[in-house]
Amino acid sequence: MTTITAATPGLSALAPRYKGILSDVWGVVHNGIEPHWSAVEALVEYRARGGSVVLITNAPRPGGPIIDQLDAMGVPREAYDALVSSGDATRSLLENWRGRTVARVGPASDDPLFEGLEIAFGPDDVATAVVVTDLDTDDDTPADYRDRMAIWLERRLPLICANPDKVVEEGDRIVYCGGALADAYEDIGGRVMMAGKPYGPIYEQAKALLDSAAGHRFAPDEILAIGDSVRTDAMGAAQFGIDLLFITGSIHAAELDAFNDPPAKRVSDFVSVSRANMVGFMPRLAW
Results as ranks from 00 to 15, higher is better:
V132Q: 00
A195H: 09
G64T: 14
N277D: 12
V84C: 01
M149Y: 03
R155Y: 01
D187Y: 06
Y80R: 10
R266F: 03
K197H: 02
V131S: 10
A39E: 00
E41Y: 13
Q205E: 04
G179Y: 03
P123G: 14
S52P: 00
G189P: 11
L14Y: 00
R104A: 13
A258F: 08
A214W: 00
A238T: 08
V84T: 04
P263G: 09
I4Y: 05
A13V: 15
E78W: 00
V53R: 06
C177A: 08
D261I: 14
W26K: 14
G178M: 11
M149D: 02
S38K: 06
P35Y: 02
I202H: 01
V44F: 00
I4N: 09
P220Y: 03
T57S: 15
Y80C: 10
D233K: 02
I21K: 03
V279M: 03
G215Q: 12
A182G: 11
N58E: 00
P158S: 04
T101D: 01
V267G: 08
D144S: 14
Y203M: 12
D172F: 15
T137N: 09
L285Y: 07
P76N: 11
F218V: 08
T8R: 09
L210M: 03
D124I: 11
Y18N: 15
L244V: 15
A120E: 07
S268D: 08
P158F: 01
A237T: 13
V25H: 05
H30Y: 06
G178A: 11
M282R: 13
R275Y: 07
P9V: 13
M149G: 11
A184P: 03
